[in-house]
Design a binder for these strands. Structure first.
Lengths: 335, 335
DNA sequence: TTGTATGCGTTATCAC
DNA sequence: GTGATAACGCATACAA
């Protein structure tokens, strides 16, 4: 059922060999103009469409890259995908996506399913137990890791310097006069969240302040819940650093509901700079990790690896470390 | 380079024929337990991973569906993808995505590239000149159209009743006491936008009001720009219906900047119910098209077509029409 | 320039 | 139960 009319049919209809038909269709120059026209005409009439899998098998080239993300939707991942898409279009590559849903096993399974169907892999797996990946992922396929912790399995990767970003967030809040700075953490098993937490703790130590960490899971609901905890305390913090923007957003919602003024009563800053931060009221300060760029540059890196041909190059490539940039908006600007 | 260790290698290492190796790995029952263990052990040691393209070619089954959207990121499409992803996981299908970037040619090109690599196609192409699709798209592959206009090329499809949704939006604004209701339109070539515009015009006629239509392109920037036009008028409208939520969002931003009160000075309603509408201030009223459900149900429909096997079934399947639901939030609630 | 034949990695149909 | 072997649809080295 799949693809009924084959190159063979076209060749037959045009009265040439299958080889000539192939050449004509692929635009090679060693075919008479007359033959080419006959073949193309036949192909058009029969509505011939090349069979991707067959071509991939014959050429061992798919012009497709596999993308494995924790999820394939939502503000954050959507931006990553946008970056990848832009890069992919530039390189003429298609995208096979898969969500690992926070599970390493799923990620490995997805990668296995992609073998032989992609020319390279772009994977983001910020899981604590991601060491498993190093051994199970590379089916000698070019591979680029996105995010996660630097040097993970010393694969080529693009990582964000989460620690220094968090540090900067804390320093910024201090500069705005905050003295009691709380932190809404990301999932405990998330490596990036861990680094951000460490940065927060180091920042507070540096400033001689005492930390307060609330649990979170990167969702706006968690931000909202954390704020409820805060509101129940005898004393509210005057600064809040959320491990990502969605939680910061949820926090502002809860705070507004409670009539707490932002940034006067409490200054807020998030992390990632997803688009929605600009639409919030007040607009949320954040650390721009360049989510879009992470996607785009990862793809460029991968694309280069693919062109260079060898999967070995993959093992030698250096990791790019992206340093997040402080973006101050109304949620934390006091003067 | 692609996938170096093949089934042949495994068979050789296990000292069996390639046929037995295949059977053992695929869990068929006609193999000795002893052979199976030997094969699995060899496969594990050699890190064998089946070659997707080869398997697809041999089985003419890819367990993958192709998804073609105008774009593969952003609030709206991200929600569609989420729906598709949920359905796909349930059916054990992988997803090959591609953005057509508003161009029919691109969509066709993407579809061609997917032939032989997917078991079915899910396409959204709300373009005015999408008639081309009907002839060029179906490479006798199961196909489901998402959105667009109903009965487009009488392919099985899932469409939103944009006209009735728009009508409802206008009626709602009227009920809130609005007398001068403006509309920010979507792209002229977009079929869904056209229907929403028609619904708006019909609604105004019904209420005996005179329309004002501002051009737009579904981006927040367009909403913002439209508001600037409005602000420059001698008399502002007291109701605003944006053809989608992003434009409504941009409009509220512009209005807030100008110190116009929402909904007291002007009531606002959008269309689609993308997640960000809830985070806006004030939260934006909208028509819930069930973006997520469109994705999920489209996939279910496609999945069923694939199981049923025939591409012909595709031609007989009926179209599902989704009627959007009015969601009233603070941006248009006056009492 | 054109056609023939082989291989890509699997599955599936046979005999054994 | 197991092992040759023929597809699957295409590209290509080689021969003509």
């Amino acid at each position: 059922m799949a693809a009924s009319v084959t190159l063979n049919d076209v060749a037959k209809a045009a009265g040439v060999s299958i080889a000539s038909a192939s050449r004509a269709i692929n635009g090679l120059d060693n075919v008479t103009e007359e033959v080419r026209e006959r073949v193309l005409a036949a192909a058009g009439k029969l509505k011939y469409v090349p069979h991707g899998a067959a071509r991939a098998l014959a050429m061992s080239r798919t012009n497709t890259i596999g993308v494995i993300l924790p999820d394939i939707y939502g503000e954050f991942f959507s931006e990553i995908i946008r970056g990848i898409d832009v890069g992919a279009r530039a390189s003429g590559l298609h995208i096979l996506v898969s969500g690992s849903h926070g599970d390493v096993k799923e990620a490995v399974k997805a990668a296995r399913a992609m073998a032989g169907r992609v020319d390279g892999l772009l994977v983001m797996a910020p899981y604590a137990d991601a060491d498993d990946l190093s051994g199970k992922l590379p089916f000698n396929l070019p591979l680029v890791m996105m995010g996660g912790v630097g040097g993970q399995a010393d694969l080529p990767s693009l990582v964000v310097d989460n620690h220094s970003g968090a540090l900067e967030a804390v320093r910024h809040l201090c500069e705005q006069g905050c003295r009691r700075i709380a932190h809404i953490a990301g999932p405990e098993s998330n490596l990036e969240a861990q680094d951000r937490l460490r940065g927060y703790l180091d920042g507070l130590k540096e400033a001689g302040l005492s930390p307060q960490v609330l649990p979170g899971d990167f969702t706006d609901g968690a931000g909202y819940a954390a704020v409820q905890t805060l509101l129940a305390q005898e004393q509210m913090p005057d600064g809040l650093f959320a491990a990502n923007d969605m939680m910061a957003l949820g926090a502002t919602l809860g705070l507004r509901e409670a009539g707490v003024s932002i940034p006067d009563d409490i200054a807020i800053i998030g992390f990632d700079d997803i688009p929605v931060t600009r639409y919030a009221s007040p607009p949320i300060s954040t650390l721009r990790a360049g989510v879009f760029d992470i996607g785009r540059r990862s793809l460029e890196l991968l694309s280069a690896l693919i062109e260079r041909g060898s999967a070995e190059a993959s093992a030698s490539a250096a990791s790019l470390i992206v340093r997040p940039e402080l973006v101050v908006r109304a949620s934390s600007r006091r003067r």
